[in-house]
Deep mutational scan, measured.
Amino acid sequence: PVYLSVKADNSMFIGNDPVTDETMITALNALTEGKKDTTIFFRADKTVDYETLMKVMDTLHQAGYLKIGLVG
């Protein structure tokens, strides 16, 4: 499974590897070998604001990742 996490300080990680807004999709493409039907499990600290969550989800959708599971 692929886990994308947003921490309380808005830092992002794919698994244990830090990513930025600019590198997130490139890292996901490498990890999933470009398979856009891969489910991305998205988790965020409860203090992360809604705007940040939606920005990340919008970026995922624009890149073609449509299977996003929200996890606690």
Score class of each variant (00 low, 15 high):
residue 62 Q to W: 05
residue 35 K to H: 10
residue 65 Y to L: 01
residue 46 K to S: 13
residue 61 H to F: 12
residue 4 L to W: 01
residue 14 I to G: 01
residue 4 L to R: 00
residue 48 V to T: 07
residue 50 Y to V: 12
residue 17 D to S: 12
residue 13 F to Q: 05
residue 49 D to N: 13
residue 70 L to R: 06
residue 25 I to M: 07
residue 2 V to E: 01
residue 57 M to Q: 04
residue 66 L to V: 11
residue 30 A to P: 01
residue 1 P to F: 11
residue 62 Q to M: 12
residue 40 I to Y: 00
residue 22 E to T: 10
residue 14 I to R: 00
residue 2 V to I: 14
residue 49 D to L: 11
residue 8 A to Y: 09
residue 71 V to F: 08
residue 55 K to W: 12
residue 15 G to T: 02
residue 51 E to V: 11
residue 24 M to Y: 06
residue 7 K to N: 13
residue 9 D to M: 05
residue 23 T to M: 07
residue 68 I to D: 02
residue 22 E to L: 10
residue 59 T to Q: 12
residue 44 A to H: 14
residue 46 K to F: 10
residue 49 D to T: 14
residue 39 T to A: 09
residue 20 T to Q: 04
residue 20 T to E: 05
residue 4 L to S: 01
residue 67 K to S: 11
residue 7 K to M: 14
residue 71 V to K: 06
residue 55 K to C: 05
residue 54 M to S: 09
residue 34 G to V: 03
residue 33 E to W: 06
residue 41 F to R: 05
residue 66 L to P: 03
residue 51 E to S: 12
residue 61 H to Y: 13
residue 12 M to I: 14
residue 62 Q to H: 09
residue 12 M to A: 02
residue 41 F to D: 04
residue 10 N to M: 12
residue 54 M to P: 00
residue 38 T to P: 03
residue 27 A to Q: 11
residue 11 S to Y: 06
residue 49 D to Q: 12
residue 2 V to S: 01
residue 9 D to T: 06
residue 6 V to T: 02
residue 27 A to R: 14
residue 72 G to K: 11
residue 8 A to V: 06
residue 63 A to M: 03
residue 12 M to W: 06
residue 35 K to V: 07
residue 51 E to L: 12
residue 43 R to T: 14
residue 40 I to P: 00
residue 8 A to C: 10
residue 21 D to L: 15
residue 53 L to V: 14
residue 5 S to W: 15
residue 8 A to R: 06
residue 14 I to Y: 02
residue 68 I to E: 01
residue 19 V to M: 03
residue 57 M to F: 11
residue 47 T to W: 11
residue 21 D to T: 15
residue 63 A to G: 08
residue 10 N to E: 06
residue 34 G to S: 07
residue 59 T to D: 06
residue 7 K to Q: 09
residue 46 K to N: 11
residue 23 T to N: 12
residue 14 I to W: 04
residue 53 L to G: 01
residue 72 G to T: 12
residue 67 K to F: 11
residue 55 K to R: 13
residue 23 T to V: 04
residue 26 T to R: 09
residue 63 A to I: 03
residue 54 M to L: 11
residue 51 E to Q: 12
residue 17 D to Q: 14
residue 65 Y to K: 00
residue 12 M to F: 06
residue 60 L to C: 01
residue 15 G to P: 01
residue 16 N to E: 12
residue 45 D to P: 05
residue 46 K to A: 13
residue 2 V to Y: 03
residue 44 A to W: 15
residue 66 L to Q: 09
residue 14 I to T: 01
residue 20 T to L: 03
residue 48 V to G: 03
residue 1 P to G: 09
residue 4 L to A: 02
residue 38 T to I: 13
residue 70 L to H: 07
residue 6 V to S: 01
residue 32 T to S: 04
residue 12 M to S: 01
residue 65 Y to T: 01
residue 61 H to V: 11
residue 21 D to C: 14
residue 61 H to Q: 10
residue 62 Q to I: 07
residue 31 L to W: 08
residue 69 G to H: 15
residue 17 D to N: 15
residue 9 D to E: 05
residue 18 P to K: 11
residue 34 G to F: 07
residue 13 F to T: 07
residue 27 A to F: 13
residue 17 D to P: 01
residue 45 D to A: 09
residue 67 K to M: 10
residue 14 I to K: 01
residue 11 S to M: 11
residue 32 T to L: 09
residue 22 E to R: 08
residue 35 K to Y: 09
residue 61 H to S: 09
residue 37 D to L: 05
residue 63 A to P: 00
residue 23 T to H: 06
